[in-house]
Design a binder for these strands. Structure first.
Lengths: 149, 149
DNA sequence: GGCGTTTGGTTATATTGTAACCAAAGGAAC
DNA sequence: GTTCCTTTGGTTACAATATAACCAAACGCC
């Protein structure tokens, strides 16, 4: 993600949160910007190191709290299989995600879940299971890495 | 999973592995049985504690190695969102999984992935992404807990 | 038996995540 | 503006999860 678009995103995020009546604090802003500037999933401690270097974070709990907040607001996602986080620019509303994760370059591409969600609802209702959240992570080889290989 | 069926499963596992030309060692057998006797996902350290109590495991690395082996042979799955493992009785071949995880009782029901896999392949190929593995975890309320609530 | 490969034991440590408690900042009411 | 409550963040300490590195034992083959 380019510096320009990540800036735009950060500004938009600010507006969205204000409209929701929740607070965009300095720490949360810093965490979101740092996430957005990365084009790869980032671990919480790597994020912490970067923020610490700029005196933007004091200790891990602060970073985890900010990440939890951003995830709950739909502005970040956690990749469970990598223990890492990615910023999300489509944060007008909280949403589940499906990520295509390249095992070679570790890029993570978010793709819409509408069709999959339908299928999951079918599978779940066959078991009387009420779906609340879902996480889908697909590992493989992205187009760029397939070309190189 | 009942003790009887978990025993059956363990015996079948033995045969399958022999046919594959890989070794079912005592440690791996113990780990698989312990997993199968649980009806809930189990963390690696909880598993380790149980095995340790029966002198069946020495230290965490041994347990992790056995778990990695069982997962690669399709006899166990790792639930990434819980950092926990479940035994899998349908291990005639390695396979991806979709789990319905109850947030109330934490039971994890494995459901087939055939239909979802199709949809994921469609989504992935639209991005030129070659799928290798996928993990799907759906969190919600199981039928039993929905009744109680 | 000798030999190479796979497996497991052991120690130490890395990585990821949280509990608990208090201080500071923000906002509403008066 | 000051009281009071709520939300947020700082700080310390630690829990939980996972792995590196290295060596010894077991296995399978010839």
């Amino acid at each position: 993600m380019s510096a320009t678009s990540s800036l735009d995103a950060a500004v938009r995020a600010e507006l969205v949160l204000t409209r929701r009546g929740v607070r965009m604090t300095q720490l949360r802003r810093d965490v979101l910007r740092t996430l957005m500037e990365e084009d790869r999933p980032v671990g919480a401690y790597k994020l912490f190191d970067q923020l610490k270097a700029r005196d933007a974070a004091s200790a891990p709990p602060a970073v985890y709290r900010a990440l939890d907040f951003l995830v709950s607001e739909g502005m970040a996602h956690k990749l469970q299989s990598l223990n890492a986080y990615v910023g999300c620019a489509c944060f007008e509303h909280a949403h589940d995600a499906h990520f295509l994760i390249c095992r070679d370059c570790s890029a993570a591409q978010e793709v819409p879940t509408k069709a999959i969600r339908k299928q999951i609802d079918r599978d779940a209702s066959a078991h009387g299971f009420a779906v609340e959240r879902m996480m889908i992570e697909t590992v493989g080889l992205c187009a760029a890495c397939a070309d190189t290989a």
